[in-house]
Amino acid sequence: MKEPTSSLQQVDLSVRIGSLCLKNPVMPASGCFAFGKEFADFYDLSELGAIVVKATTLEPRLGNATPRVAETAAGMLNAIGLQNPGVERVVRDELPWLRSFDIPVIVNIAGTTVEDYVEVARRLGESEDVDALELNISCPNVKCGGIQFGTDPAQAAHVTASVKAVSRVPVIVKLSPNVSDIVAMGKAVESAGADAISLINTLVGMRIDLRTRKPIIHNKIGGLSGPAIKPIAIRMVHDVSQAVHIPIIGMGGIMTGEDAAEFVMAGATAIAVGTANFVQPTACQDIISELRAWCEQAGIASVTELCGVAWK
C-alpha cells in the first residue's frame, strides 16, 4: 500500500512577501497585537510568520475618549484613535526587544499629511529593527488619520510613492474597504511602487444604546471587524489579487485555520489575524497549527499551491 504523501512530509507553510521570507503565512494584524509583549506571556513569538505592530505616528497620541469598543453580531466596533507613544519611543523602547525573535518586524505607520508619513518612514529607516513598513491609509477613527488617502486612488498613489522614495525596506499599503472601487485603489498603489497590499481594514459602522439613545462609542463611528466582515474581505482579496501582480496579505474576521485557507484560495499570499487575538490570546498560534493540519488533510505539500485557486 502506498502511504499518503501527507504523512511522509511536513507541509511547507513558507511564503514570500516581496523580499521578506515568512516561515508561515500567519501574522497578527496591526493594532491587534500592541507591540507583542503581552502575547509573549502565552507563546513564543518566533512561531509567527511575521509581526505587525501598532500604528505609529510622528508624535505620541492619546487616542479617543471611551467607550472605544462595542460588541456587534459576530464582530466588534472599535474607535481607539491611534493611541501610540510616537515614533521616537517606538524605535527606542519597543522594536529592539522584538528583534530577539526570529521573525520579520513590520511597522504600521499613520499620519495626517504626506510629510508625516515620509518623516515617520525616514526615522524608522534609521532603525535596524524594521523589516517592512505598512502604510495605514485606512484608519476610520481619527479625523485626519489617513482615511483621506485611503479613498482616493491619486492620493493613495502619492503617499505610497513618497514613502517608497525614502524607505530602504519593502512598503505594504493597507487599504480601506470603505470605497466603491477597491480594484482601482489596489492598482493605484501598485503603480506607485507598493511591494504588497494588506486587505482589508475595518468597515465604518455604528451602534446605538437603546437606553441613552446615543451611539455607544464616544467617537460615534467605529471600525467593524470580526467574522461579520469576512465575506467582504474575501471578495475584495479575490478581486484585487487578480488585478495586481504584488502579493496580498488578506485579513478580516479570520478566527480559524480554515478561514485562513479560504483567504489564500481567494488570492492572499499571507494572512493577518486581528480581532481573534482579543478573544483568544493564542489565536495566531492556534491558526498556524490548524492551517498546517488542514493542508495535511487536504494533501497540500506547499501552502503556495492554494493561492488563488478560487479564481477560475
Binding site: G31, A34, E38, L62, T66, P67, R68, V69, I80, F278
Partner: peptide, 26 residues
Amino acid sequence: EERMGCGIGVCLACVHGIRTDDDVSN
C-alpha cells in the same frame, strides 16, 4: 469599570486617565 476588549492590555479599549506626578496619562 470600563468597556473592555482583550483584557490583557493589547487593544487599548479600556483606558482611563491616571495622574502621575504632574502629568495625566492613559
